[in-house]
Write a protein that binds this DNA or RNA. Structure first.
Lengths: 68, 68
DNA sequence: TCATAATGTTCTTCTGTAGATCATTATGCA
DNA sequence: TGCATAATGATCTACAGAAGAACATTATGA
């Protein structure tokens, strides 16, 4: 499975969902879904905006968990 | 922008699009779009299948390129 | 050269995000 | 403590693009 670490990254920086949505320009619903890991599809543009805003790599945002 | 390194990873292993599609169960059209970087959206399930098949991390498949 | 495999291309279908709105909960201040 | 406001949760419709299939074109190799 692919784990999304958005909530962890946001928690470390004490960011709110509204902040991230406002600053990245990404829809709040989208941020909410990634935060709660209920998203199953993601726009590359969204990943781009999050990496830029959180100053992180794609690999820090999404992790491949080998659960066979 | 987000760069997809699927073509590079496939090239290194001399893999064909049909092979990857067959082995991962991902639609060939989807592999083709990622290969040619014409995809703008991606299923987490697809990333999962590719990471597992290529034995790589998400960060090796997608890279954040900071082009301001 | 010919058969077959691989890739490219195009079309329809359908899923899930985008975006908006409303409901609920949390927060801060008087 | 109560109230105003901000943040989050939840839900709905519209739409973009992946999924999947089918057909065309190109590459491969016997």
């Amino acid at each position: 499975m692919i784990k999304c670490h958005l909530s962890k990254l946001m928690g470390e920086k004490k960011l709110k969902i509204v902040d991230v949505a406002r600053e990245t320009g990404v829809n709040r619903g989208t941020i909410t879904r990634l935060y709660h890991e209920t998203a199953s599809r993601v726009e590359l543009e969204t990943i781009d905006a999050l990496c830029r805003y959180l100053d992180c790599e794609v690999g820090e945002l999404f992790e491949f968990m080998d659960d066979h």
